[in-house]
């Protein structure tokens, strides 16, 4: 025969990244932020909430590389400590919608019929409300704070995942290997979660990355409105909000946390592109 079998796939660092620059760069950026979050107490030169009345709104200098805010708190330290909160927000803000959405999407796509119709109408209802308005009202009911934010994200954010996965499952369940699984007497749960879901999930995994960016921006917006992270805890969105009155006089108060949001978002989106390439979604 003329078609020679390709060698078996070997995982490993070089193989994982290969020529995939986006994946490597995205992972590197994300790793940098994770390290900063883990070692915040060691890296940060100051206590993030320690106030210094003598050094209010000090411009960037050797003493305070990113300057200080209106309470004299060191912005670099606050950005570093803020990494902890923001990464946490990106993670929890995505992981619950992802889990709920994939399960709902799998069930809807697999069973079809009435189950599918009911779940899809529920999604339509949620989508009928403007996203931020719905988030704000849920948080308003639960009271401000990060946990309210996560709950609101979980309640609202799963719909996109459900629709993504459902569309995939609808296609995959007619494939021969799904029919084969049925004919081999496999149970429905096994077919759904062992045979269909792993093949349907690539698109959602990529979407997680771009969704993380949106969650990050949402979280910042919610905090900016005073419904998320409460002062004096350092969080980039809150910091941008607090610096707003001084944008013209002390630009550094908003610039550095803002840049951090952009950098992390950039990392996530690179990672998403890279994963897409890697999992064969982009092509």
């Amino acid at each position: 025969m003329s078609v020679l079998a390709r060698p078996a796939f070997t995982p490993g660092w070089s193989k994982a990244f290969g020529t995939n620059g986006a994946l490597a760069a995205g992972s590197a950026i994300l790793a940098l932020f994770v390290l900063a979050a883990l070692f915040a107490p060691l890296i940060a030169p100051y206590d993030p909430i320690a106030q210094d009345a003598a050094a209010r709104l000090a411009a960037p200098s050797l003493l305070h590389p990113f300057g200080t805010d209106n309470f004299g708190r060191d912005i670099l330290s606050r950005v570093i400590w803020g990494t902890r909160i923001d990464l946490q927000m990106a993670f929890f803000g995505v992981v619950f919608p992802f889990l709920i959405g994939t399960v709902v999407g799998t069930v809807a796509g697999f069973f079809g019929g009435v189950v599918d119709a009911l779940l899809m109408r529920l999604i339509d209802i949620i989508l009928a409300f403007p996203f931020l308005v719905l988030m704000l009202s849920i948080i308003a009911i639960l009271g401000p704070g990060l946990s309210s934010f996560y709950i609101a994200m979980a309640l609202v954010g799963w719909v996109s995942y459900a629709r993504l996965v459902r569309a995939q499952i609808l296609v995959l369940k007619t494939q021969d290997y799904a029919v084969a699984a049925t004919s081999l007497g496999f149970g429905r749960l096994r077919i759904m979660f062992r045979h269909l879901l792993p093949n349907a999930i690539a698109g959602s995994v990529v979407f997680v990355m771009s969704d993380a960016v949106l969650v990050l921006l949402n979280g910042a917006a919610i905090s900016y409105l005073g419904l998320g992270v409460q002062p004096p805890v350092a969080e980039w969105g809150v910091m941008v909000a607090e610096g707003q009155p001084f944008v013209t006089t002390a630009w550094w108060v908003t610039l550095f946390p803002g840049l951090s949001i952009v950098a992390l978002a950039f990392g996530f989106s690179l990672l998403g592109d890279g994963l897409g390439q890697r999992l064969g979604v982009a092509e």
Binding site: D176, Y177, A180, A181, N199
Partner: peptide, 22 residues
């Protein structure tokens, strides 16, 4: 059905499509 599942099996047309790629 239980009997068929344990005593009968099927081989499909498209060999790549018939096996779970993962």
């Amino acid at each position: 059905l239980a009997k068929l599942r344990t005593d009968a099996a099927m081989v499909f047309q498209d060999p790549y499509n018939a096996l779970n790629p993962r």
